[in-house]
Nucleic acid binder design. Structure first.
Length: 874
RNA sequence: GCCGACGUAGCCCAAUUGGUAGAGGCAAGCGACUUAAAAUCGCUCAAGUGCGGGUUCGAGUCCCGCCGUCGGCACCA
């Protein structure tokens, strides 16, 4: 189609307006304190998920959400809002580094190149970003503050009383008061174990192919989310962020947010809060006899303790060595070895068949003093709870399967009531039986309460020193260090005694050294460890050589947009006050648990420490649906169904791309691309163009002589005002597809008219403007020059959104549907203000209605004003 | 297995939130313009709402039970 003549000169028009917007800074948002700041204007902050500038450039999924927010922003500006609509680059990350390693180019170079490409592509779509607020997470003036926030995490702890982060100094003071004789080392150890950013030796996800550790969230089915490489578990000393401290608040504070319920659920499930108890099982033969030497299990069903017939430890559990008897040693070691050699994936794949071995040891069930065997099995995870469980095979499917396979005792302690079938294991709530007078006959919830107690009263477990109520989370602390080059260095150094200490704030940013060779070392030593000049500090200290993960920069970028050039603070208090929260955040579901959880966590810490005034960053969240290829499959290079937005713009123009992305269907829905559909909206825009313009003999476009200074007809006024109403409402509710159909309808109506009233058409251009800004501005300019006395000489972007007049929307006569027994039998035209009595009389008199009501009794007449009348008769 | 979303003309999708199943687009067909074609303009065509029950004067919409598609989680004790 490239040879085909363009239906309207979109290429000239679009470039022209984009240049003008750039030069005039049309979409600049002013901050409190700016000379042009108007405090009377309400604010609106619409945020897009900023892209990772990959080498592939933009794909059609990006402009979907971006167009949606752009329409809202252009609309809100016309309604008099001061609109913050920024864009930036999430540019640290593996791909740039991988590419750099393969091609021997510095990642900064490729990143800059990619950003320039992305930016050019975004500008070509005509988004109304305030480019003066552009940010880049790899810019030292940006990551200076990422490092600064890290120091805040490092220098604070979570106070469980107030459920909030507090400065670490408070903890130090308190500790000194409580333990005045403690040595500095002991004090430090205590403090370090409480920091929100801390070092820990944990079993981490080590990815040999990428040469780095990964967060749980970055591992999918035992493989790396990026690159799909195998991941193994390996104990390493790493920086961790104590996100689990915020587990409760991250769930509770979701409540007031206007987020899709599915996303809230996803986050809740990911955090995975469960209430239960830690229960201590003394090991038989243990002479110490206190709880610290016992096996502690976590259970959500302490009411089933009497049915706990054996104990299972994770193979990695450190107690295994102590418990295993010499007879069982060989078997246990063999099993542990196999378990360790299995990748996470293999372990979860063997989902079906349970395996495990007996340790030879026994524990004592604290509720009845019974001796129960201790097993190890890999269905018990070392990473959840305590790495040990009490098995209640009668009421837990996994335990049931295991017990059945190994012939362990299955003792029923919950009566399912009339529901139950006795064979299979019953996991629901019922009545406690076969337990003890303590709980027998009580419902599951009552029995739990007896065991765990209430807020006021401790339960049986606590009173007897057998356990303590506890809330457990699936959420793990956030593994925050990576063995990579292209990331934020930690503002941390280590003294010669091996203690870590913070780099002072005035030394920020800590920039990574320029390095020739930043390949992963293949060991746990990060690439930065090779830069010895950089690593070694004067006082024999050495710098931390890990870097932060990709997520760090995106945890707070929405704050920086509010005050991007501030060199004194990450955000000024005034800017925070004025702009936050984000009124609307649009992006893909792929960030439902990762980015959105991390950002909320950081935000809450900063809030607790008094740097922010809002508890949550994103008030309203909308997930755009994925755009599939023309074949209904996910777009991918290998399938060859990828649509390139540049090509769409070349052939149909940016306005068509924008319009099509919105016309495809509801924003949140998954939907396939269709080039025919693009042509459809392109034809619509060309129709709009020809509604105003015609070609002269030389083929030059000029204003059509059908466009006149005439009064619109009643019908025209009606559809115009209908459209003003519908488009406005649909933009507010993000139903862009239906807004566009309404504008198509209007265009069809006016195209059919010989006299096209310029006043009405000018109003229509305002409605079209947020969707197709270039063509609407261009046409507006043409009619301004011909009708200067009627059309104000101003850009649509700078003039007010039109208002509709209800009077034009109503007819004097309305069509009323006449039903008999709910079935449509006839229609009638009646005066709008006809009374119910009149309606009923008229309806009953209708020729087509008579046969249905003759000879039967009319029981009831239902009238919906202006809509229908239903005669119920039999 | 669990959680969530969605099933309406050949296709993408509407339906004032319980009130005439059709707004818009694509495709198809016919006509006008044209030497012809493309483009354009005009007209036409189509499903009874995945299936089975229920509530109601009235169900695409609400309830119950199935089926299918897509997405997420998945030995979380």
């Amino acid at each position: 189609m490239s040879e085909r003549r363009k239906q309207y000169p979109f290429d000239e028009i679009e470039a022209k307006w984009q240049n003008l917007w750039d030069q005039e800074k049309t979409f600049r948002a002013s901050n409190p304190g700016d000379p042009d700041f108007d405090p009377k204007k309400p604010k609106y902050y619409a945020l897009d998920m900023f892209p990772y500038p990959s080498g592939q450039g933009l794909h059609v999924g990006h402009p979907e959400g971006y167009t949606a927010t752009d329409i809202i922003c252009r609309f809100k500006r016309k309604q008099g809002f001061n609109v913050l609509h920024p864009m930036g680059w999430d540019a640290f990350g593996l791909p740039a580094e991988q590419y750099a390693i393969e091609h021997g180019v510095h990642p900064r170079e490729t990143t800059e190149k990619n950003i320039a490409h992305f930016k050019g592509q975004l500008k070509r779509i005509g988004f109304s970003y305030d480019w003066e607020r552009e940010i880049n997470t790899t810019d030292p003036s940006y990551y200076r503050w990422t490092q600064w926030i890290f120091l805040k995490l490092y220098n604070s702890y979570f106070d469980t009383q107030s459920k909030a982060a507090r400065p670490i100094e408070e903890l130090i003071e308190k500790r000194k008061k409580d333990f005045p004789d403690e040595s500095n080392t002991e004090l430090n150890d205590h403090i370090n174990s409480r920091r929100l950013a801390y070092i820990d030796e944990v079993a981490v996800n080590w990815c040999p192919a990428l040469g780095t550790v990964l967060a749980n969230e970055e591992v999918v089915q035992g493989r790396s989310e990026r690159g799909d490489h195998p991941v193994e578990r390996k104990p390493m000393r790493q920086w961790m962020l104590r996100i689990t401290a915020y587990g409760d608040r991250l769930i509770e504070e979701l409540e007031d947010l206007e987020w899709p319920s599915g996303i809230k659920k996803l986050q809740q499930n990911w955090i995975g809060r469960s209430e239960g108890a830690d229960v201590h099982f003394r090991i038989e033969g243990d002479t110490v006899g206190n709880n610290s030497s016992a096996i502690t299990v976590f259970t959500t069903r302490p009411d089933t303790l009497f049915g706990a017939t054996y104990i299972v430890l994770a193979p990695e559990n450190s107690l295994v060595d102590q418990i295993t008897t010499s007879e069982q040693l060989e078997e246990v070691n063999a099993y542990r070895k196999t378990a360790a050699s299995k990748s996470e994936r293999e372990r979860t794949e063997t989902n079906k068949e349970k395996s495990g071995v007996f340790t030879g040891g026994y524990a004592i069930n604290p509720v009845n003093g019974e001796r129960v065997p201790i097993w190890i099995a890999d269905y018990v995870l070392t990473s959840y709870g305590t790495g040990a469980i009490m098995a209640v095979p009668a009421h837990d499917e996994r335990d049931h399967e295991f017990a059945s396979k190994f012939g362990l005792e299955i003792r029923q302690v919950v009566d399912p009531g009339n529901e139950g079938n006795d064979e299979a294991c019953f996991t629901g709530d019922g009545t406690a039986i076969n337990s003890s007078p303590l709980i027998d006959g009580l419902s599951t919830s009552e029995a739990k309460e007896v065991m765990m107690g209430t807020k006021k009263e401790p339960g049986w477990l606590e009173k007897n020193g057998a356990g303590v109520p506890r809330v457990n989370f699936k959420l793990r602390d956030w593994l925050f260090s990576r063995q990579r080059y292209w990331g934020e260095p930690f503002p941390i150094a280590w003294d010669k005694d091996g203690n870590h200490y913070p780099i002072s704030e005035d030394q920020l940013p800590v920039e990574a050294p320029a390095m020739e060779d930043f390949k992963p070392t293949g060991t746990a030593d990060p690439p930065l460890s090779k830069a010895s000049d950089w690593v070694n500090l004067k006082d024999q200290s050495t710098r931390e050589t890990n870097t932060m993960p990709q997520w760090a920069g995106s945890c707070w970028y929405y704050l920086r947009y509010c005050d991007p050039d501030n060199t004194d603070a990450f955000i000024s208090s005034e800017a925070d006050d004025y702009w936050m929260n984000v009124d609307l955040y649009v992006g893909g579901t792929e960030h439902a648990v990762l980015h959105l959880l991390y950002a909320r966590f950081w935000h809450k810490v900063l809030y607790d420490l008094g740097y922010l005034k809002t508890r949550e960053p994103f008030h309203k969240l909308v997930n755009q649906g994925m755009i599939l290829g023309e074949d209904g499959q996910k777009m991918s290079k290998s399938r060859g169904n990828v649509v390139n937005p540049d090509e769409v713009i070349n052939e149909y123009g940016a306005d068509s791309l924008r319009l099509y992305e919105m016309f495809m269907g509801p924003l949140e829905q998954v939907k396939p691309w269709s080039m025919k559909g693009v042509e459809g909206v392109y034809r619509f825009l060309a129709r709009v163009w020809r509604l105003f313009m015609e070609e002269d003999q030389e083929g030059k476009w000029q204003l059509s002589n059908k466009v006149k200074d005439v009064e619109p007809t009643k019908k025209q006024l009606r559809i115009l005002h209908e459209t003003i109403k519908k488009v406005g409402e649909d933009i507010e509710s993000l139903d862009f597809n239906t807004a566009i159909s309404q504008m198509m309808k209007l265009t069809n109506e006016f195209t059919a008219a010989e006299n096209r009233p310029v006043s009405s058409l000018a109003t229509f251009l305002h409605l079209l403007n947020p969707f197709a800004p270039h063509i609407s501005e261009e046409i507006n300019r043409v009619i301004v020059s011909t009708f200067p006395s009627i059309i104000p000489d101003a850009q649509l972007a700078k003039t007010t959104w039109p208002e509709f007049d209800e009077d034009y929307l109503v007819d004097d006569e309305v069509e009323i549907v006449v039903q008999v027994n709910g079935k449509l039998r006839d229609k009638m035209l009646v005066a709008k203000e006809a009374s119910n009595e009149e309606l009923e009389a008229t309806a009953k008199g209708l020729e087509k209605i008579q046969p249905f009501i003759d000879g039967v009794t009319v029981r009831k007449v239902i009238i919906v004003p202006g809509k229908l009348i239903n005669i119920v008769a039999n």
